[in-house]
Amino acid sequence: MLTSNTDDPPILVCADLQVEYLTPGRRHVILDGEAATARCLELLMLWRDNLWPVMHLKRIAQAAWFNPASRLTDWIAETKPRPGEMTFEHPLPSAYSSARFVDYMSNIRNVRCVLVGFSLDETILATAVDGFHRSHRYQVVADAVACRQPGAGDAAAYKHAVVNVIGNFATIQSSAELIRTSGAVAV
């Protein structure tokens, strides 16, 4: 089903676009970070140019490996939220672990969100599943998401497997397809 963006555009949800995931030598560094960041920026520019709603999620975990006082939890400079863009901090993988996020999502009609960003195997997966169980529609842009390296095995195969699992709870689309149909987004 195609819906016009000019009538009711989906919310672009930028998940965990934080320095932590791009810093070499860090435990949670992602392999395809530059490519995913470029795709996220392309989509972010499209949303901003059209004045469509943008939401930023920021993981602030309490675990020892994720120190909220560290500069590593800062936004990637190019993706930093602008005035008027919503931001939500969440302590657990799902954005729904933020009471403010739950309140916001429960008070908008026709919830449609396009998910991009990092932490594919945590934040994006958990948020898509939680949203599915609340009848919120999510779309994940496969080439604008990334996840950390798996402990063992092929990182590309791991990402592909996670995207396939998310496909049970959300629509999967490429950034090129999304940009090409920017006047109407499949949901």
Rank of each mutant, 00 (worst) to 15 (best):
R134C: 06
R112C: 00
V129L: 13
V114A: 00
I166N: 02
L178C: 03
G151T: 07
V140F: 03
Q149F: 09
N164T: 14
T181K: 05
Q173R: 10
I179A: 07
A142Q: 14
P150H: 06
I179W: 03
A144T: 08
H133I: 10
A128T: 14
D143T: 06
G167F: 13
D130C: 13
A170S: 14
H160N: 10
D130G: 04
K159R: 13
A152R: 11
V129R: 12
V145Q: 04
G117K: 01
N164S: 14
H160G: 06
C147I: 08
H160F: 04
D130K: 02
Y138D: 11
C147S: 14
V165K: 12
A155E: 15
D143S: 06
V163G: 00
G183N: 12
Y158H: 14
Q149T: 07
Y138H: 15
R180F: 04
D121C: 11
N110A: 08
C147Q: 09
A184N: 11
C113S: 06
V116C: 03
F132K: 04
A184R: 09
G167N: 11
A155K: 03
S135V: 11
T123F: 04
S174P: 01
I108D: 11
N164F: 02
T127Y: 05
T181Y: 05
V165G: 05
N164A: 15
N168Y: 12
R137T: 14
R134Q: 15
T171P: 00
V162H: 01
T123K: 01
V116N: 00
R148A: 11
S174Y: 08
R180V: 00
Q149C: 05
I172F: 02
V145N: 03
V141T: 13
I124F: 06
E122Q: 15
V111R: 02
G153M: 07
G183H: 10
V116M: 01
A161R: 08
L125E: 14
I166M: 07
Y158K: 02
P150F: 05
E177W: 02
L125I: 11
N168E: 13
N168K: 12
N164R: 14
S175K: 03
A184H: 10
N168I: 06
V162C: 06
I172N: 03
G167A: 11
N110R: 10
K159D: 08
F132R: 08
G151V: 05
E122V: 14
N110W: 04
S135G: 02
I166S: 02
N168D: 12
Y158P: 02
L178F: 02
T181H: 09
C147T: 15
R137H: 15
G153S: 07
F118C: 09
V116A: 01
K159F: 00
Y158M: 07
R134V: 09
N110H: 10
R109W: 05
A146I: 05
G151F: 09
L178A: 01
H160Y: 04
S119R: 08
V162E: 07
F118G: 04
G131R: 02
H133P: 02
E177V: 02
F118M: 13
V140T: 13
F169H: 13
A142L: 09
I108L: 13
E177H: 06
H136Q: 15
I166W: 03
R137V: 15
A155V: 14
A142I: 12
A128H: 00
